[in-house]
């Protein structure tokens, strides 16, 4: 499926900013970082899901383990028809279903409640094991943040995925090299990152997310006999010059008129 990632990316970012203006909450930088990963999965036809039947047992599962990136997920799920458009503007409102971290019992299309970091990989492993027990062939995708890989539970999960040779499992790391306080290399260095995953028994690929089609091509090729990880080289805050790599935008959600104007100028299609 041919996707105009530049156009789709700008549209998603526009929607996200509209939601943040309304709610004055959200992790903009973290969300902008992973939009292209989600576009490849959901709009590139990698994920087999059915918005009309979100609990279809044989659907592929996608867990956004870095739940604070959910602002990127909501507009895409909405576009696919998982929930009505009005919900987007109820983001973080008392009666809305879309919170600052996603909850699977509230939001159709969200497979696990995340936000506390270090949970999604193990949940995904459980889903992949259950699928194997049930004789189902669907795939399980888990998106991790790089800062999230500070959590020991991620590496517990990595050991187990390898033990069970879970080749239906694909881990995608949003590797923008920044976390809340500072650079990953300063807070808790992860390098040599690819080597760590290899040592844990994963098939490892790295991809520059300036070229989302490369991730798409990678995910079409199956890996047999072991779990896989794709380290996605991303840019925190991608898409708006003064948000990119700017740590203030990990939490910043109260936007000035000038910022809003400049953001929409840069996101003009």
């Amino acid at each position: 499926m041919e996707i105009d990632y530049a156009k789709e990316g700008k549209e998603a970012r526009q929607t996200i900013i509209e939601m943040v203006i309304a709610a004055q909450r959200g992790h903009v930088g973290s969300a902008f970082s992973l939009i292209e990963i989600l576009l490849v999965l959901y709009k590139g036809g990698i994920l087999k899901v059915d918005p009309k039947n979100p609990h279809w047992p044989e659907r592929d599962r996608m867990i956004l383990s870095k739940g604070h990136g959910c602002l990127a997920l909501y507009p895409i799920l909405c576009d696919l028809g998982f929930f009505p458009r009005e919900e987007l503007m109820l983001y973080c409102r008392p009666k809305g279903i879309l919170g600052g971290h996603p909850e699977h019992l509230k939001v159709p299309g969200v497979e696990a409640s995340t936000g506390a970091l270090g949970h999604g990989l193990s949940i995904g492993i459980g889903m992949a094991l259950a699928a194997r027990m049930n004789g189902h062939k669907h795939r399980v995708f888990v998106i991790l943040g790089d800062g999230e890989c500070d959590e020991g539970s991620i590496w517990e999960g990595a050991l187990h995925a390898s033990k069970h040779a879970l080749d239906s499992l694909t881990v995608l790391v949003d590797y923008n090299r920044q976390q809340s306080y500072s650079d990953v290399s300063e807070v808790l260095p992860l390098e040599p990152f690819a080597e760590k995953w290899r040592a844990f028994g994963f098939s490892v690929d790295e991809v520059d997310m300036d070229h989302p089609d490369r991730l798409h091509a990678l995910l079409l090729k199956p890996v047999a006999g072991r779990p896989r990880v794709v380290i996605c080289h991303t840019v925190k805050g991608k898409g708006v010059s003064f948000i990119e790599r700017n740590l203030q935008w990990h939490h910043k959600a109260k936007l000035t008129e000038l910022e809003i104007e400049n953001i929409f100028n840069e996101l003009e299609i």
């Binding site: 047992p57 949970h119 459980g126 699928a131 049930n134």
Partner: peptide, 17 residues
């Protein structure tokens, strides 16, 4: 690895186990 096991068990339960 109790943290992992509880998460894994939850994932299995979400798939009907």
């Amino acid at each position: 690895s109790e943290q992992h096991i509880v998460g894994m068990a939850a994932g299995m339960a979400m798939s009907g186990k």
